[in-house]
Design a binder for these strands. Structure first.
Length: 473
DNA sequence: ATGTAC
């Protein structure tokens, strides 16, 4: 594999073998995965072999190894030219994403004296960890299917939120084309008892303070101001999304040969978008995505209730965005308008200012990009920029550099909590082991990731947020 | 990511 440094923020993997397009990695040398133990760059090259892929197989600055596709990968296929959709290009946690709430009323100094009580209440009232439990259980199978069709919109219709929330949700709260019938009974069983829960792994709910604003005008439009409190929620579609991915990977793995498709890695199982298996997956994926959207809406409502009880103040939704999804979008390809299936796995959509899919208030500044760091480091709010490469996409987080196993070997959960609390960050975990696996040292430097994101022209900074308290999944 | 396993 030949890697060429095009600029200090962009590397190219030369086309070779079965690759249909080159690989393009938006990373500085320091942020490139180190080939030993991390096969992310090999995965970028593997993705470049997919039928119908256009332009390049892209990787964001936070790229690291994933299942088949790298996490931090973006790949678009031409639907009209036999382009494929691959569940591995979305990931197991379908529509995993980030939601940011902002309180215009609450400054850090007002929260500080009540922080321990607020964190205790958030800890008690946020279902998390593996297994069942959620803030709201659908009455029956039929109501779960309404969640799969309506996403955050259905949650709001049921009284869990306000209409304005939906203006600040990607897709206004629900992805179109959801086909609950393509979600297996097994996936539905797993999902019915987990709606409104964080899950585990890198999922969290964090109380943050706006430490710095880079663009006052954009911050004002997004509804952010320095010194005030935010709550960031990172979670996905739990067992329902996971089961949906597994079900459709299996179907596609079996169907590939009969479609005449061969891929260098079984985990890249795929089918043409315009085929029964492709359509079935996209319908199931959209349904699971709406479960994820409803999940974040319900958790946000729980946050509002906890604050109303413990530290009265209101929270407005800044934005809710997925970073694990495939979308059918129109883009210019070699001067032609084409319908593409854009896979973003651990990558955030980052629409530029003026894009027709943005609600009016946001059209002026571009789509918010929510980029969480780690428990002990900053998170960022960015916005999309004109002329962005990679089909208007940006990084989604800091990006792992250490395996969960290695992270847990490096520090104990109790010790990590003590360290964070000494720095004024309240911690409410789910398990000591899970906490240790998420130690900030297991991740890339989020400030460097954001710097490269901006230099590479993927998005630009609006605000930097610092952690005050974290509820870990 | 995940009732960390078909």
């Amino acid at each position: 594999m030949r890697l060429v440094e095009e600029t200090p923020w962009r590397h190219r993997i030369e086309r070779e073998g079965a690759m249909r397009v080159p690989g393009v990695v938006f990373a500085s040398r320091a942020l490139l995965p180190d080939g030993s133990g991390d096969h992310a760059l090999r995965q970028v090259a593997n993705v470049a072999t997919l039928p119908g892929i256009v332009a390049a197989s892209y990787a964001m600055p936070d790229v690291h190894e994933g299942y088949g596709f790298p996490i931090g990968g973006v790949a678009a296929t031409d639907v009209g030219a036999g382009g494929v959709v691959s569940p591995g290009g979305v990931g197991f946690d379908i529509s995993c994403g980030v939601r940011l709430l902002f309180s215009p009323d609450l400054a850090l100094e007002e929260l500080r004296p009540r922080l321990a009580r607020v964190m205790d209440a958030l800890g008690r009232q946020t279902p998390r960890g593996p297994g069942p439990g959620g803030v709201w259980r659908p009455r029956d199978r039929a109501e779960l299917e309404r969640v799969l069709l309506g996403g955050a919109r259905y949650a709001v219709e049921q009284g869990h939120g306000v209409a304005r929330d939906l203006e600040r949700c990607e897709d206004r709260g629900a992805v179109g084309g959801a086909a609950p019938a393509q979600v297996s009974p097994h996936a539905l069983e797993r999902g019915i008892g987990q709606l409104g829960s964080l899950g585990s792994g890198n999922h969290f709910l964090e109380v943050q303070v706006v430490e710095r604003v880079y663009d006052e005008h954009a911050a004002r439009i997004l509804g952010l101001a320095a010194g005030r409190i935010c709550v960031m929620i990172h979670c996905g579609s739990r067992g329902l999304g996971h089961q949906t991915c597994a079900d459709h990977v299996r179907v596609m793995d079996r169907a590939m040969a009969s479609c005449g498709i061969s891929v260098p890695d079984r985990m890249l199982a795929c089918a043409p978008v315009d085929s029964p298996a492709g359509r079935d997956y996209l319908g199931a994926m959209s349904a699971a995505a709406n479960y994820g959207r409803a999940n974040r809406q319900l958790l946000a409502e729980r946050v509002r209730r906890v604050f109303a009880e413990e530290c009265p103040c209101g929270f407005d939704l800044v934005y809710d965005v997925s970073h694990n999804l495939a979308k059918l979008e129109e883009h210019d390809v070699d001067g032609d308008r084409r319908l593409l299936c854009v896979h973003r796995k651990g990558a955030t959509r980052a629409l530029p200012p003026g894009h027709p899919d943005l609600p009016a208030p946001l059209a002026e500044v571009g789509q918010p990009v929510l980029l969480p760091g780690t428990m002990g480091t900053a998170s960022y709010v960015l916005v999309g920029v004109p002329g962005s490469p990679a089909f208007s996409s940006a990084a989604h987080g800091a990006g792992r550099v250490q395996s969960r196993h290695a992270a847990a070997r490096s520090i104990g959960g109790r010790q990590l909590r003590t360290q964070l609390e000494a720095r004024g960050i309240a911690v409410r975990g789910a398990s000591w082991r899970g906490l240790a696996e998420e130690t900030p040292t297991a991740y890339k430097d989020v400030d460097a990731v954001v710097e490269v994101t901006e230099r590479a022209g993927l998005a630009r900074k609006v605000a930097r947020l610092l952690p005050v308290g974290v509820v870990k999944g």
